[in-house]
Amino acid sequence: MSIQHFRVALIPFFAAFCLPVFAHPETLVKVKDAEDQLGARVGYIELDLNSGKILESFRPEERFPMMSTFKVLLCGAVLSRVDAGQEQLGRRIHYSQNDLVEYSPVTEKHLTDGMTVRELCSAAITMSDNTAANLLLTTIGGPKELTAFLHNMGDHVTRLDRWEPELNEAIPNDERDTTMPAAMATTLRKLLTGELLTLASRQQLIDWMEADKVAGPLLRSALPAGWFIADKSGAGERGSRGIIAALGPDGKPSRIVVIYTTGSQATMDERNRQIAEIGASLIKHW
């Protein structure tokens, strides 16, 4: 067993022997301040990774656009098919120029040779490549099948209805392509620590998230040296922004954090800054 596999296998073990965790309302004060600064709703939840206990939450059962955070769930569904012998990570998928959609920095470079399922998941999570996500959605049967996968996990809230990039439209009061912070946090925890996926697939999923290259201005910008984070960000229309993450000190994750916002007129930089400040408060009061 590799060191990384050992780390993920012992996530519940280490967490069980940690000192009790206590909620700190100071972080919620910052979440509410972010709402004021952005002029928009902000949803927040913080779960203990081992027990699933909610440590703090704000608007945990209000719907927010998922945006690209759905790509972690998508690759979880792909990995479940791999575990069941219905898919192979090494299978190569070929596609054409007509398949390319807006923001496809990886797939646009491989029109000639195609990409493997493993490479597509890596591109979808680490670079948020939209064509990679659409190609992977095709392998599982489309958005409705991802929703069905989530329902089978016990998540009857999260739903995907459309493809990239239309799913980022974020129309107010439109339930399409949305989740709730509580539902997303619980589902992410199941994917990373539950028995739904094999140990190898859980490790692969967290490795992809740990290698995320496009979430630097968010929670990662607030992390002290030595902290662990595996995350996936999302951005959408109407001032929408979000991030889902597993993080913790001492090089291992111990909490799940989900943050979503929508309806702001603020710039992307300002949305990023507010999420980073929430992260800084979380870490300060850990």
Rank of each mutant, 00 (worst) to 15 (best):
V258E: 06
I93C: 03
R81G: 01
D83R: 01
F228R: 12
L160P: 12
L192Q: 04
N130H: 08
L120H: 02
L218E: 01
H110M: 01
S57R: 05
A148T: 12
D99C: 15
E62M: 15
A182W: 12
Y44K: 05
E56D: 13
E210R: 13
P65V: 10
A245L: 10
N50S: 09
I275Q: 15
G216W: 01
K252Y: 02
L49N: 13
R91Q: 13
R162C: 01
E175R: 04
T158M: 01
R118L: 14
T107D: 05
F70D: 04
S51Q: 09
M66L: 09
L136C: 00
Y95T: 01
L135R: 05
A230K: 00
G39K: 12
I283S: 15
A183C: 10
S96V: 04
A266R: 15
I243Y: 11
L197N: 13
E270I: 14
I93K: 13
N98W: 05
E166T: 09
L136W: 01
L188A: 03
E26F: 06
E195F: 00
G248N: 01
L247S: 06
A170H: 01
N168C: 10
N98P: 03
R63I: 11
V29A: 11
Y95F: 05
V101A: 07
A183G: 07
G248E: 09
R41I: 13
A276P: 05
L120D: 12
R271E: 02
Q97E: 05
A170T: 10
K232W: 11
N130R: 02
V258A: 11
L146Y: 00
R220M: 14
A230L: 10
Y103V: 00
D161I: 06
A40D: 02
K144Q: 10
S221E: 01
D212F: 00
N50G: 09
T158N: 14
L49V: 15
I278S: 15
N130D: 01
R81L: 08
S51Y: 09
I243Q: 00
L136R: 02
N50W: 08
H110A: 10
M127I: 06
W163Y: 13
R118F: 11
T69A: 04
L100E: 15
R255I: 00
W227H: 02
N50M: 12
P172F: 04
K232T: 15
Y103P: 04
V72D: 08
S240I: 12
D48H: 00
V214E: 00
G263Q: 06
N272G: 03
T158G: 07
D231E: 06
T139I: 00
G142P: 06
E270T: 15
T138S: 08
R176N: 13
K32E: 00
D48Y: 00
G234F: 06
Q265V: 08
S96K: 11
L100I: 06
F228N: 00
A230T: 03
C75R: 07
L49R: 12
K190W: 15
D250P: 09
S128H: 03
G114S: 12
V82N: 04
E61N: 11
T267S: 10
L137G: 06
T158Q: 06
D33R: 03
A148N: 09
L100F: 11
H94I: 11
I229R: 02
L219T: 12
G90Q: 12
A124N: 04
T107N: 00
P217G: 10
N168I: 11
D129Q: 15
D83A: 00
V101K: 01
S96W: 08
G141D: 02
M66I: 11
S221W: 06
K190E: 13
Y95D: 03
T261Y: 08
E166N: 04
M127W: 03
T116E: 12
T179E: 13
T116H: 13
G239M: 14
L47I: 08
D129F: 15
D99F: 00
Y103C: 01
M153E: 07
G85Y: 01
S104P: 10
K71D: 03
M268R: 12
L205N: 08
P143A: 08
V214T: 07
H110K: 15
W227E: 01
K30Y: 07
A280S: 00
L247H: 01
P25H: 10
S57H: 12
A133H: 03
K32N: 01
W208A: 05
F149L: 14
Q88T: 14
K71Y: 05
D174N: 05
T147V: 15
I256Q: 14
